[in-house]
Amino acid sequence: MHLYAGKKHQKYILNDCPNDSLLNAIGVRNGLEVSVVTKQPIGGPIIIRVKKREIAIDKSLACLITAKAVN
């Protein structure tokens, strides 16, 4: 599944992240455990939590990130 399809409060491990320099620099990479905080309406971004950081990722980009749900 892609990250944008993720459910709120569910944890995911990122499997395949696109090669985007800012995404990489901000530390969003394969193997990272994230949880979905919320999604913004009318095509807005998804907000994920990585440890104690909150990161907003554009819908178009989040649709390219594959992720696997974890318990």
């Binding site: 985007d20 800012l22 995404l23 901000i26 969003v28 971004p45 907000i47 950081r53 909150e54 990161i55 907003a56 990722i57 554009d58 178009s60 980009l61």
Partner: peptide, 16 residues
């Protein structure tokens, strides 16, 4: 302006 100017906006990646 969004229609007239060529190109696309970059995706948002923002650490809060």
């Amino acid at each position: 302006l969004n229609r007239l100017l060529k190109g696309k906006s970059r995706p948002l990646i923002l650490e809060l």
